[in-house]
Simulated scan of single mutants.
Amino acid sequence: MTLALPPGEFRAYLFDCDGTIADNMPLHFRAWQQALGEHGCELSEELFYAWGGRSVLDIIVDLNAAQGLDMPVPEVDRRREELYQELLPELTAVPEVVWHVEDGHGRVPMAVVSGGTREPVSLSLCTLGLLDRFDVLVCAGEYTRGKPDPECFLLAAAHLGVAPEHCLVFEDTDLGMQAAAAAGMAAVRVPPPWERTPSAALGNH
């Protein structure tokens, strides 16, 4: 699989992290399942991917409401992150996206714009040996409104000193694509794992 970029001369690349650079959504799903299961909560794979790009807080609050539970948000979040870090040795990158990271390195300024907090995002990028490729990280807690609001992408563009219309966004979620469009930026969609490696998930989707 190759990622076809939209036409145009782009002066900055903005990358989502989870599911875009890092092929870690299957690992996140396993961590979520175990952390939630310890509280008697269920999360289907379909819903997990449909909610891609949402904040951890919003997900836990909505699951509590939907399933009549009272899970403590900070505790579930800490446990989920702890379980995810245990799975990090299994982490791989999305090769087609890394190609563009390496191609752009030293040629155009690049940022990671994530709905995750800085520590786990940095840890994932360090694990993949890619942290030093990026000029800027914009992570949860550093902006007020999450995707699909364009704030995080506009903040990254401002940090890089590049006008939004000259930025290209790499994203794997509907919310991320909506945020890029709202920011006035071109975007390329990174397919989910089962579309990139169909044999790995035959029968699951």
Rank of each mutant, 00 (worst) to 15 (best):
G53T: 08
H159R: 15
E38H: 08
V112D: 07
S44I: 02
D16V: 00
P120R: 01
L154P: 05
G176E: 06
A187T: 01
I60E: 04
M110D: 07
R196E: 08
F48M: 06
Q34S: 10
R78Y: 09
V76G: 10
V56N: 13
E9S: 11
H39P: 11
I59D: 09
S124L: 03
V190D: 03
G141I: 00
R189H: 14
E46N: 04
Y13E: 10
C41N: 02
W99I: 05
S199M: 12
P148F: 02
G184L: 03
V76C: 12
L83R: 14
T20D: 10
V188F: 05
I60P: 12
C152V: 02
R133C: 08
F134Q: 13
L14K: 02
L175G: 08
V61C: 08
E42Q: 09
V190M: 05
G161T: 07
D135V: 05
F153R: 11
P7E: 13
R80M: 11
E102R: 14
A200I: 05
M71A: 08
N64H: 10
E171Q: 08
E75A: 13
V101R: 04
V73H: 12
S114I: 01
D132A: 13
L91S: 09
Q178S: 14
F29S: 09
E90L: 12
A187I: 00
K147L: 04
W32E: 04
N204Q: 15
L88W: 09
P109Q: 02
G176T: 06
L83N: 12
T2Q: 11
L168P: 06
L202M: 06
E151I: 07
E45H: 13
K147E: 00
W51I: 01
G53R: 13
D135P: 08
R107S: 05
R145G: 04
G37D: 00
E9T: 11
W32G: 02
P148I: 03
Q85T: 00
L155H: 05
P89A: 10
V97S: 07
V162F: 11
R189D: 09
A65C: 00
V101S: 07
Q178H: 06
P148Y: 04
R189A: 14
P120V: 01
V61A: 15
K147F: 04
A66G: 03
